[in-house]
């Protein structure tokens, strides 16, 4: 599993780690979504500090969670994005929908 989730006081933090691709994104998605549905958080924090690699499947993961958070009336925050992920994040334009 490439994610650990922590829920506290309306905020859901997903600590992502390892390599995020189409293969690993599925389990991350299932795990984060079940926590969102359980708690209906006002904020989802995706923490990329320990992510070694990410392709556009990671962007799909961010976009999908953004849509889900919008449905439950919450927002999404990207934090600790390491320099090696900046390029794909900039290319995708997801910065405009996240905080």
């Amino acid at each position: 599993m490439n994610v650990k989730t922590i829920y506290d006081d309306g905020e859901l933090t997903a600590l992502l780690f390892g390599e995020i691709d189409h293969h690993t994104a599925r389990d991350i998605r299932l795990s984060v979504d079940s926590e969102i549905e359980k708690h209906h958080p006002t904020k989802l924090i995706l923490d990329f500090r320990r992510v070694k690699f990410m392709d556009s499947s990671g962007i799909g993961l961010i976009m999908g969670r953004y849509r889900l958070m919008k449905l439950v009336g919450g927002e999404i925050v990207l934090c600790n994005v390491p320099p090696h992920l900046e390029r794909i994040i900039a290319l995708s334009g997801v910065r405009s929908i996240t905080k």
Partner: peptide, 9 residues
């Protein structure tokens, strides 16, 4: 879940 960015990347 697909961003549609594969070729752009």
């Amino acid at each position: 879940e697909r961003a549609g960015l594969g070729f752009a990347v």
